[in-house]
Each structure stands twice: as C-alpha cells, then as structure tokens.
Design a protein around this nucleic acid. Structure first.
Lengths: 159, 159
DNA sequence: AATTTTGGACAGCCAGGTTGTCTATTTGAG
DNA sequence: CTCAAATAGACAACCTGGCTGTCCAAAATT
C-alpha cells in the first residue's frame, strides 16, 4: 500500500530524530549534558580541517557569524581552544581539546551502538538496504544540520 | 561496508530535508510563498480535529502558546479563520479556509510527486522497502516536527 | 456556591540562525 | 613598492519559533 509522500518525509524525520534524541540522552548520561549532536558534528568538522570560523561556516553551510557562535559555545564548554594563528594574524586557530576528542569518540560509539540496535530489530540487511537507497537518492548532497532547536527538547523524561 | 551510525543519522536527515526543501520550493512556485511544511502539517492537524490552540498544541507536542503563534501565522496568511465557539465561550474555534484546503491538496500532491520521483530513481520496491523498515523501526512513535527553522532556508536560489 | 480545571492571551527569555557594519591583515595587481 | 581587493573575525541588531510564567474568564467538578 503506497502511502503518501508526506508520510515518507515524516518517517525520515522520525528516524533521524529518534537517533539524535537518543544520542543526546546517552551523551548526557555520560557527562556531556550540555551537548547536542550539532556540536558533535561541528567538532568533527573542526577536527577534519575546518580549524577557523570562516572555514567552519563554509563546511556547515552557515554564516561565519553563526559558526563563531558555535565555536564560542564549544570553547566555553571546554571542547575546543582558540589561539592566534602564528602565520596569519587575522585568524584564530581552533584546536580540539582532549575532552573534545573523548566526547567525539563517545558520540561516535553511541551512534554506532544505536545503529546496531536497529540492526537487531530489523536485520542488518534491512539497515544496509536503507542506507544504500538513501545514499543513492541523495547523491553527493551535503546535508546541513543547522539550527535544530528541537534537538534540545526535553525528550520526555520518564518522571 | 557498514558505515558509521552517525552517517546513517545524517542520511535520514538529508532525506527529509531534501523532500521538505523541494516541497517548500514547489509550494512557493505555486503561490504559497510564505509557507513551510510545518504549516502544512499543522493545517492537517487542525483539519483532523485539533480545532483549537490547546488541542493543536497537544497534537504537535508543543505548548499552547507556540500553537497559538502558529495559528496566528496561518490566520494572517489566510489559511484559517478563528471564530468564537458558540458553545464554549473560552474557545476560539479554528476553521480551515478554502485557501487552506487548496494549499493542503497542493502540498499533498507535491509530496506524492516527490515520492514518485524517488521511485523512478531507485525503483518503487526500494522506496517501499525503505518505508517498511522505517515504519518497523519507529513503531507508533509520533514525530513532532516543531521549530524546523532550517526549513525556511534559502535553498540555494539558482541565481 | 466554591474550587479546580481549562482555553487563551500577554510578557519576557533563549537558542541559533540572519544581515549589516567595521577593523585588521593578507593577498594580488599594476 | 604601493594601493586596492579579499579575507578573518567581531559586534550589534533583528527574526523565528520554541519556552516559562502570569493572569483572566469561562467551564466543570465537588
């Protein structure tokens, strides 16, 4: 029964939110309470070369001002440090701290874990198939994951 | 090659964004320039019984204040009308206007169209499989699609 | 009749984007 | 070598779309 296209969109969003929300909860449980997936991804971008605000902005498809704000948050939380670039005095070089590295590792582990849970639910083949289809559909589209204010939601504490 | 769980999350988000962004563009092209999928979904909720702010809030898992804001937007754009409920003078009854109905139909058509495009890209079977898997994984989780500020993005006008 | 619940509105706050403006520095053209 | 253009970053002001808190009027319940 071919459902509507809107349903399909909702399912995709639901899938992402489920993963992201659970990851947020897990991260919080491990002591990274003030962090959401966006920060995780930003950190990853920084680690892989986007070591200044302008470049980070380009990578994440947001303005450099927004990128600077994100960096400020990461810095205040102790995940990165900023220091003047010795060769270009306009730049502030961004470096991921030890805490940042650790958080990144934990984050990746959590996501991998979630993926595995899904595999036990529907079989590894189904998850792979899902990924393959999506990859094929999206091609090389870069996904910007900006301003998901909703990632910060309560997540329904089991009060 | 089993990629990381984070990739999977990004793919899901990317899939949703692709659909949502394209739908926004299409809607705009058809004269609904000030509308994003959230409004579409809110309208749908209103149509199916959430005919007052408090109820709409419950349906969309947001506060009644937020729901009221959304309604105010929809009203100012002419998609709904508010009129006092004759039987309960606390309530403002919300009604979808003709324009609202039309927009809803167009929106659904657009999403269906996008889905069909995907089917021609990867085959109807793959899309169905993807849906089946996601449905299985998500179960009866209700997806809240609040505050996607990012749905409003430029979408890279082809200047 | 009095209390509790509910619907709605208003104010103020926050996050995370945006544009616009400005300075310092580097780069590149002539 | 000099001067113009591009780039990095910061600051301010604004917008959207959530949130909480407070408050009032109208049900609903006791």
């Amino acid at each position: 029964m071919s459902r509507s296209g809107a349903d399909l969109a909702l399912l995709l969003l639901g899938g992402f939110r489920t993963l992201a929300d659970r990851a947020t909860v897990e991260l919080a449980a491990r002591g990274y309470e003030d962090i959401r997936p966006v920060h995780d991804f930003a950190l990853q971008a920084i680690l892989t070369g986007a070591d200044n605000a302008s470049e980070l902005g380009r990578r994440m498809s947001v303005t450099k001002q927004s990128a600077a704000k994100t960096i400020a948050v990461l810095e205040s939380r102790g995940y990165v440090e900023r220091r003047p670039d010795p060769t270009d005095r306009r730049r502030m070089h961004i470096e991921v701290t030890d805490r940042g590295h650790t958080m990144l590792r934990e984050g990746a582990a959590i996501f991998d874990d979630l993926r595995q849970q899904w595999e036990t639910q529907v079989g590894a083949g189904a998850v792979e198939q899902l990924e393959r289809t999506l990859r094929q559909l999206l091609g090389d589209t870069t996904t910007r994951l900006d301003t998901p204010g909703w990632l910060v939601q309560d997540l329904g504490g089991e009060s």
